[in-house]
Write a protein that binds this DNA or RNA. Structure first.
Lengths: 213, 213
DNA sequence: AAGAAAGCTGACGGTTGCGTCAGTTCCCGT
DNA sequence: ACGGGAACTGACGCAACCGTCAGCTTTCTT
C-alpha cells in the first residue's frame, strides 16, 4: 500500500515538489517574487519551512522552475496553427484555446506576466531561446497563408501579438476586465463573449477584400 | 533669484516630491512594490533616505500617489471618443494615441499593470470608482455608433478591452514584444507598424458588411 | 536682522525574512 | 528485522529594510 521508490507518481519527492510548486504558483501570482515569503509557501503547502528548503535550494529556484514549466507548455500550445488548416478556423481555435487556458489556469500565466513586466530578470538565455523558437512556426504559417492570399497581408508578428494580448488580458488583468464589464468576477460566458468579439473583429478584419472598392 | 513660496514651479516641496515620485515610478515599474527599497528610491532621486520620509509617510503612500495620478490621466485620455466623430477615424486616433502613450511613458503604465496583476491590493474604492465611470462614456459612444449602424454590433466593453489590451501589451510586455519581433528594443517604427496592424485587422473587422454573403 | 517655519539628515531600533544545520524520524530493500 | 539513505524539522544566525527622531541648516517673512 505504501509508495514504492519505483513508482514515480507516488514518490515522496515528486509529490512534495508538486505541493510546493503549486502553492508557490498561487502566491507568486498574487504577490510577486519579492512579495512572497518562503514561510507562506510552506504554510500553503502544508509543510514546515525547513522542509521546503530540503527540496529547493532557494526561493529563486522555485520561481525559476515555475517559469520554465510554463514556457515549455506555452511553446507546445502554438501547435494549433498549421499551414494546411483553414486560417480562420485555425486562428479561431487558437484564440478560444488561449482564452480557455487563461480562464482555467490564470495563476501560471500571471507569474509569467509579472516576470515579463519586471523585464525578465530571472529568465535564462535558454528560456529566451525557447520563446524565440516557439514563435518561429506560427510566423511561418501566417506568412504561408498570406502568400497564398488566404488572409490579408498584415505583419505576422504584430498579428500574433494582437491575438496574444487580448487572450492574455483576460487572465492577467482579470480584475480590470471585471471592472470594465461591471461584474464581480469573470464567468465562463464572459470568456465566450470575449472570444466571439475577437473573432468578429480582429479575425474578420483579416479576410481578404471581398469587394474591390 | 531664490525660490519664492508663492512660485509653485520652484517650491522646494513640489520639486522634491516630483523627484521622488519620478524615481519611484521607474523603480516600482521594474521591481514592483515589495521589490523596491526606499533607500533605492532615495538614491535614484538624489536625496537621503530620511528626506524621502520627510515628504512621504511611507512607501505605500508614494505608491498610492503614483496610482492615483495615473488613474486620473487615464480617464481623461478616453476623451478621444465622441459620438459625432467618424468611428474609424476616432478609434484609429485612440489606438495611436494609446500606443504613443505606451511608447513614451512605459513606466507609469507598468506600475499600474503590476498592481492590477496583484489583484489591486492598493486600489481604494475611490480608485475603482474612477475606473468604472471612466469606462461609461466610451461604452455609450460605441453603443450609439452601433445603433446608427456605423459599426458592427459587437459587445462594446469587450471591444474596448481588445483595443486596450493590444496597446497595453507593447508597454507592459515590451521585452516579450521585442522578442517576438526579434529586435533588441522597440523603436518608434515598431509602434507605428503595431498601430497599422491593429487598424488593418481589428478596426477593419468593425466595418459593417459591404456584401451580404 | 532676527525669529519662525520649512527643509534636511545621520544614526539607530525593532522586525522580518532568507537560508542553515545538527539531530531525529521514516521508508524501503534485502 | 535491520541498516542505510531519504525525509524531516525546531531553533537560530545574520543581513536587510522600514520608519523614527532629535537636532541641525536653509529659507522666508516682517
Amino acid at each position: 500500500m505504501s509508495a514504492k521508490a519505483s513508482d514515480p507518481e507516488l514518490r515522496i519527492r515528486a509529490r512534495n515538489e508538486a505541493l510546493i510548486s503549486d502553492a508557490a504558483t498561487r502566491l507568486f501570482a498574487r504577490k510577486g517574487f519579492e512579495g512572497t515569503r518562503i514561510s507562506e509557501i510552506a504554510e500553503a503547502a502544508g509543510l514546515p519551512k525547513a522542509n521546503v528548503y530540503y527540496y529547493f535550494g532557494s526561493k529563486a529556484e522555485i520561481y525559476r522552475s515555475i517559469l520554465r514549466r510554463l514556457l515549455t507548455n506555452w511553446t507546445v500550445a502554438l501547435d494549433h496553427l498549421s499551414e494546411e488548416r483553414d486560417p480562420f478556423e485555425a486562428l479561431e481555435a487558437y484564440v478560444r484555446a488561449k482564452l480557455e487556458h487563461s480562464r482555467r489556469f490564470p495563476d501560471e500565466t500571471r507569474v509569467f506576466a509579472t516576470e515579463i513586466l519586471a523585464g525578465g530578470p530571472y529568465l535564462t538565455p535558454e528560456d529566451r531561446e525557447l520563446m524565440r523558437v516557439g514563435m518561429l512556426r506560427p510566423v511561418e504559417v501566417l506568412e504561408a497563408w498570406i502568400a497564398r492570399g488566404l488572409i490579408r497581408p498584415v505583419h505576422p508578428r504584430h498579428l500574433m501579438i494582437t491575438l496574444w494580448s487580448a487572450a492574455q488580458y483576460y487572465a492577467d488583468f482579470e480584475i480590470m476586465a471585471a471592472h470594465t464589464l461591471e461584474v464581480k468576477k469573470l464567468k465562463r460566458a464572459d470568456y465566450d463573449t470575449a472570444a466571439d468579439t475577437i473573432v468578429q473583429t480582429t479575425l474578420r478584419g483579416l479576410r481578404p477584400d471581398p469587394v474591390p472598392a
